[in-house]
Simulated assay, not measured.
Amino acid sequence: MRMLTCCLICLVGWLQYHLWLGKNGLLEYYEIRDNSAVTEQANAKLSQRNQQMFAEIADLKRGQEAIEERARNELGMIKPGETFYRIASE
């Protein structure tokens, strides 16, 4: 009976070791779960950025207003006959 008890204790100890620390154990599971959460957040940010870029591309393909706005803001272009005023603050 004593031998059976020792064998069962060793078996339970061995199973607990593999459950917690072994390959594909709980510690590895928690680490992978945390990594996947971080990856999902990064993917959500990138997806949102992609949607904004797709909207901007569609806007550029559809109308002249977006092209004109971009030329004014980024390149400093003005239409013929317009007067451009730059206000400098000190």
Rank of each mutant, 00 (worst) to 15 (best):
Q64D: 09
Q64K: 04
A88W: 09
L21G: 10
K61C: 10
A37F: 13
E74A: 02
A88P: 02
C10L: 15
E69D: 05
I32F: 05
N24S: 11
E74R: 04
M77P: 02
T39A: 14
I67N: 03
G81N: 01
K61R: 14
K79T: 04
C10T: 06
M77V: 03
Q16C: 07
Q64E: 11
A55V: 03
G81P: 03
Q52N: 11
L75N: 00
G25A: 01
T5P: 01
A44K: 15
Q48C: 05
Y17D: 06
D34V: 04
L46Q: 07
T5V: 15
A37E: 15
E90H: 15
W14Q: 00
N50A: 14
E28A: 02
L15D: 12
K45Q: 13
Y29P: 01
E65M: 04
C6S: 10
M77L: 09
I78W: 05
I67V: 05
F54T: 11
A42Q: 12
G63K: 04
L19H: 07
Q48R: 12
W20E: 13
G76L: 00
Y30M: 09
S47Q: 12
D59Y: 05
M1P: 06
W20Y: 14
N50C: 01
T5D: 10
R33H: 13
I32W: 04
C6K: 14
R33F: 10
I9V: 12
Q52G: 07
M77E: 11
I67W: 01
R70D: 02
E40P: 02
Q48W: 06
C6I: 14
T39G: 05
L15T: 10
I67R: 02
E40S: 11
K61F: 01
S47F: 05
I87Y: 06
T39K: 00
F84C: 12
Q64G: 07
N24T: 03
T83I: 10
L4I: 12
T5I: 15
F84K: 15
K61A: 13
R2K: 14
R33D: 14
Q64S: 09
D34W: 01
Y29E: 12
Y85N: 05
Q16Y: 09
N73P: 01
H18F: 05
V38S: 09
M77S: 04
I67C: 01
Q16S: 15
H18L: 10
L8C: 05
N35Y: 08
E28I: 03
G63A: 09
M1Y: 06
L19W: 09
Y30K: 14
E65S: 08
E74N: 01
I57A: 13
E68T: 15
M3S: 09
G13F: 03
Q51P: 00
L11I: 05
G81K: 00
Q51T: 12
G22A: 07
E31Q: 13
G76H: 00
A42T: 03
G81W: 02
Q41C: 02
N73Y: 08
R62Y: 14
